[in-house]
């Protein structure tokens, strides 16, 4: 969809082509897993948990947007599919957390396919508008679903999360559970990026017609990427339902989708650290700056505009570029002649 400057995308592909790109993410997650040792406040933990749940969905969005170059404005709706699947399974079939995870992933994948197969027939920005419309439509359906979906007031989640008979509902334990899921989705996303499948997706992103000419079934791979992003969203929805204990249609309407897109943009969709950085920044910045919700939303919006205009590859890539530039400048000063080799 968007072709960035060629040299930049080349360096990016090179820099992610090894295990090195996974290491910083794993280190960060390991450090985050140690947080409960410092007995943080409940408020901190619940913020961190909702950030983590968003990050899982963001990893799906980064496969779709960062790798394939298609943007979905209905991602929160797929999170909603996961959340409602978990709530309905718990209410009607007495099925718990661990079975809900795969079922919700599959359900979200199916809905993603239902949305994706027709939507991806149209190209570029029309697709974005389509996903937006489908997201809104899903909210309307959930609101009008009567007793089955609990209408506008939504559904309650009655079941606890247990593992080997231990109750995981206490905040520190639930936090660790979320960190574990974030780790799994980061590794899954890393594996996708580094597989030949990921390379195919990037080929589509860089030049759709060329990819098609090379024999890549562009349409099928785009739908595939959309379905993969749906699985991430579904899993994150289950965690959300079990964390919040109550879900309603408004949580999955178009604005949550905008916030998810914002997080992935701010963090940068192409790097493995991007979703992690975006999710954490957007969740904690208002807390750090001590803003009320209205002010923080104005800040989000302004950040989104600034990031798109000035750092189209996200904050992390922006920092990395700035760092490379600094290094290059400092090396240039002593030996002004030989600079063409510097840089990644």
């Amino acid at each position: 969809m968007e072709v960035y400057e060629h040299d930049r995308s080349n360096t990016m592909i090179k820099s992610v082509s090894s295990l090195r790109s996974l290491a910083p993410v794993l280190i960060v997650l390991l450090l985050l897993a140690l947080v409960p040792l410092f007995s943080p406040s409940n408020r901190f933990l619940s913020l961190a948990i909702s950030a983590g749940i968003n990050i899982i969905a963001l990893y799906g969005l980064s496969v779709l947007f960062g790798q394939t170059g298609i943007l979905s404005m209905g991602h929160a709706a797929l999170v909603g599919v996961g959340a409602y699947t978990a709530a309905l399974l718990a209410r009607d079939f007495d099925i718990g957390f661990w079975v809900s995870i795969p079922v919700a992933g599959i359900m979200a994948a199916i809905v993603a396919a239902i949305i994706g197969i027709p939507s991806l027939r149209v190209s570029g920005h029309h697709f974005v508008i389509m996903t937006f419309a489908f997201g809104q439509l899903l909210t309307i359906i959930l609101t009008n679903g009567g007793d089955f979906t609990g209408a506008a007031s939504g559904l309650d989640m009655g079941k606890p999360v247990t593992m080997f008979g231990a109750d995981l509902d206490a905040l520190p334990r639930f936090y660790l559970l979320v960190v574990a899921f974030v780790t799994v989705s980061a590794v899954a996303s890393w594996a996708i990026i580094h597989s030949s499948y990921g390379r195919t997706l990037r080929a589509i992103r860089e030049n759709e017609k060329l990819a098609a000419a090379l024999g890549i079934d562009v349409g099928r791979h785009k739908i595939g990427a959309f379905i993969v992003s749906g699985v991430f969203a579904g899993v994150s929805g289950v965690l959300l339902a079990y964390f919040l204990r109550h879900i309603s249609p408004g949580q999955f309407a178009s604005f949550p989708s905008i916030y998810l897109a914002l997080m992935v943009m701010i963090g940068g969709a192409r790097l493995l650290l991007g979703p992690l950085a975006g999710g954490i920044l957007v969740s904690f910045l208002p807390e750090v700056l001590n803003l009320d919700p209205v002010q923080s939303r104005i800040l989000y919006g302004a950040c989104l505009i600034a990031v798109i205009l000035f750092l189209p590859n996200g904050v992390i890539a922006g920092i990395a570029d700035g760092w490379t530039w600094l290094v290059r400048m400092s090396k240039r000063r002593p030996a002004a002649g030989n600079v063409s080799e510097v840089g990644r």
Binding site: V128, V294, I298, I305, I308, P312
Partner: peptide, 21 residues
């Protein structure tokens, strides 16, 4: 154009909440 679209989404959030503020 897609960047313009994303920027406009940011504008939605900003304009709404400036009015609310």
């Amino acid at each position: 154009p897609t960047n313009g679209f994303i920027v406009s989404l940011g504008l939605i959030v900003v304009l709404q909440h400036v009015v609310i503020l």
